[in-house]
Design a protein around this nucleic acid. Sequence first.
DNA 1: CGTCTATTTGAATGTACTCAAAAGCGGTGG
DNA 2: CCACCGCTTTTGAGTACATTCAAATAGACG
Lengths: 195, 195
Amino acid sequence: MEIEDQIALLVEHINKDVTLSKTGIKKLSSILQFKTLHKKELLIEPGSTANTMNFIVQGAMRSYYLDENGQEHTLQLGIEQWWINDLYSYLSGKASRMYVQALERTWLIQLPKTELEELYHHVPEVSNFFRIKIQSAYVALQERVIENMSEDAYERYNNFRNTYKNIEQRVPQYIIASYLGVTPEFLSYLRKKHS
Amino acid sequence: MEIEDQIALLVEHINKDVTLSKTGIKKLSSILQFKTLHKKELLIEPGSTANTMNFIVQGAMRSYYLDENGQEHTLQLGIEQWWINDLYSYLSGKASRMYVQALERTWLIQLPKTELEELYHHVPEVSNFFRIKIQSAYVALQERVIENMSEDAYERYNNFRNTYKNIEQRVPQYIIASYLGVTPEFLSYLRKKHS
DNA sequence: CGTCTATTTGAATGTACTCAAAAGCGGTGG
DNA sequence: CCACCGCTTTTGAGTACATTCAAATAGACG
């Protein structure tokens, strides 16, 4: 895909929450970086530090955590027009304990932290935009804590299908299970039972 | 407790993360409000909007959510020198869906959002302080999502005792159960089993 | 002391996990 | 183009973790 078209997608996405001026778009464009990941490639892994914001132009990604028993726990999934990151590492500047991985061949637009924070001073709409995004990340996490406590696995699965409408078909079922916090066997059982 | 002593506690607390100047402290002091809550009194309830940051000077509080089945799910607990809020409502300005309640007679220092955001411009250390606090709130939530997925109830109970060291004795056990996401009966059973 | 609320106990049940094996599916090389 | 390989999903039996409901006991507070 042409760079121009990729930028247009990002701008359109940002304009859903704030209003960028012509010069704002220009300044924003000047800090963008473009990256392609092949299937299964890692963007972030334990020990590395997240120093960009990452917008998915095309493809699918996830962030996940590996527990002491070697089990994967998927925290976030994303496709076109979603942001993906380890926000903890990005915000704190500390090393990540998570993996962020491409599930398909994926095209990203990256916004390096240093340049982005500099840009905030000149284009406050961008600053507002990310404040809003970080707030919704917080809210989404809180929803998830509540969901995990008040709903059983099948209800959570339905919520998932709602929140991640178009993503379900593109992601292996064992990853969905690891997002829901159940075993792949049990998710398979649930799907059969309710079909 | 004297107002002066209360302010001193708050300043000491903030100075753990940033360094306040003399004039910074003065400006901060000028926006503070003081509130007392009796046991079981609600600071925030569904429909209301959180428009202050709340520092616990003395006492104990919790935030909780009521699900469709009428079950309580405790999201946060706090005692002296902790902050308590519905951050979702505070940050978004939208109506809360949660309760924030005093578990004992409690003395709060409140920082009204409007004045606080104005203060950010004049005392950037305060702005930094809250950025750090909101980041740790995000991190704590993320930890909790991971914990809920990768640990059984007894492990979560031990984590709880660690994180909330001095709080355990002051809070009824059914509230701890509602924080862990188990029934009071099952928590009672676990405690006996491992004693 | 009595009342109200919180905690414990126990039996029956349900939800989810483990382990093992079979079936399905997609990509690759011959 | 088909056969095979590796990975994902399904199936099933046995088990463990956690809930529900009911009742007994313990604690707190006026």
